[in-house]
């Protein structure tokens, strides 16, 4: 839950991880992120972006190095604390929504943390308002469109008022209007955001800082405006210039 923690919210030092012994997916990752930042994580397919995100929320607790979320070390005994501070919006919104109605799904997190009925109600209303889907409150989740599902999935995380929000490919399968709407909403959210995406235009519109990953290592960590103009760096690591610069 949002604790009002300011400053350093995420600290990663010399992080390495492998699914199988001897085959490192991530190698010597170092990263510090602060409250209010919006960080894009880019890289070609299969270079470890999603793995890094899942490490942050403790889904893979066996790693080497230092991993701290809002001052809590990410390990088995701390998972509950860690997950109070960090929310994860999955790429597949359909799988993220598992309760009958949007309202029930958005209330699921706060209820699990034992908040009072009034507080749950307040959080649900605020989360729905933040993503402008108050009208979908009583809707059944299976009836939603792709864009509505994505916004509902974001609301399920916002209701937990996390300090950090992780989003895995949030713009995927959204039509232009929903995409534009999502960009506007993300700009309005004040938490630290980590957004993985192949959609570099989307990253340009939502993140001021970008991290480029390749072969399990951080290749670049700096201003988005800088890397998005660096055609050589992008192409050397399996990416292309954003569409708006590529002349397509």
């Amino acid at each position: 839950m949002h604790t009002g923690v300011h400053g350093e919210l995420l600290k990663i030092e010399h992080l390495s991880f492998s699914y199988e012994k001897g085959q490192e997916v991530l190698t010597d990752i170092n990263l510090v992120a602060h409250d209010g930042e919006s960080i894009g994580i880019i890289g070609s397919n299969g270079i470890g972006k999603s793995t890094l995100m899942k490490l942050l929320v403790g889904l893979y607790p066996d790693y080497n190095g230092v991993l701290e979320v809002a001052g809590h070390t990410v390990d088995k005994k701390n998972l509950s604390h860690v997950r109070e501070h960090i929310g994860y919006v999955f790429q597949d919104s359909e799988s993220q929504l598992f309760l009958s109605t949007v309202e029930d799904d958005v209330a699921f997190g706060p209820q699990n943390y034992g908040l009072s009925k009034e507080e749950v109600e307040r959080r649900v209303s605020e989360a729905l308002a933040k993503v402008h889907i108050e009208h979908l409150r009583k809707f059944q989740t299976y009836k939603l469109s792709g864009g509505e599902k994505k916004l509902s999935a974001i609301a399920t995380i916002l209701s937990m008022e996390p300090d950090i929000i992780i989003m895995d490919e949030p713009s995927i399968a959204l039509d232009p209007r929903n995409r534009k709407n999502l960009i506007k909403i993300l700009r309005e959210i004040s938490s630290l955001k980590l957004i993985t995406s192949h959609d570099l235009d989307f990253i340009m519109d939502t993140c001021e800082r970008t991290i480029l990953l390749d072969d399990g290592r951080i290749i670049f960590d700096g201003p988005t405006s800088e890397i998005m103009h660096d055609e050589k760096l992008l192409t050397d690591h399996g990416l292309e210039l954003p569409l708006r610069f590529s002349g397509v």
Binding site: V57, L59, F90, S95, Q96, F98
Partner: peptide, 20 residues
């Protein structure tokens, strides 16, 4: 795979083995 995503999504929102 999909059931696993659903389960992970539940875990990340504080699911501790009981539905509210």
């Amino acid at each position: 795979d999909r059931a696993n995503i659903v389960y992970e999504s539940m875990l990340l929102r504080g699911f501790k083995g009981d539905f509210f």
